[in-house]
Amino acid sequence: MTDSLAMLPLLLEGLRLTLQITVLAAVLALVLAIVAGLARSYAPRPLAWLAATYVEIFRGTSALIQLFWFFFALPLLGVELGAFVTAVLVLGLNSGAYGAEVVRGAIGAVPRGQWEAATSLGYGRLGALRRVVFPQAALAMVPPAGNLAIELLKNTALVSMITLSDLTFRAQILRAETLRTVEIFILVLVLYYLAARFITHGMGRLERHLARGRDHGGLAP
């Protein structure tokens, strides 16, 4: 048992990279999700179409192949991003595509009466969206966004396939050196699980913060 704990520092080094990629990709995904989600519903035709194309491409293809394409194929076209940037970019784009649908769905689910009340008070479309509709939709977005963040965390295991020493990669190395497969992967599972719990906890706090004073879920009755 002491021996297996001796492996922990190495795995924690890997976890640090895993978390770095998760956080940076999540920030990128959040921005992309909001921009693409709003563009699909409210932007002029060409922009809406561009957003829809982005969402369909990144939802419709495998994240692993997307990583491979950006890491192995793009350099052949003269664009070299490096493994870390590729990981953040691809996972952010992938997660953002799912997130865009969450944003679009949540905004579409805000009752029409909220738009009408804001409009009748003199707000334009943008003002009504910013002040009235989006804050309500944001609350409805939190639970599915939490799911996506956990998906993203687990998807980071794929970056071990493009030379990055994340948690999964380090587990493979340790396994090859020590052959203590059972213990190593139990440790790895626990570490991923704890990281996911942390996300769930954070999302729960965010939801309670956004829902203060409200006696039911995300949307107006």
Binding site: E116, A117, A220
Partner: peptide
């Protein structure tokens, strides 16, 4: 003009 609606439509947040 100002309008009052059947279902209030107060901003719940």
């Amino acid at each position: 003009a100002g309008m009052v609606f059947q279902h209030f439509n107060l901003f719940p947040h």
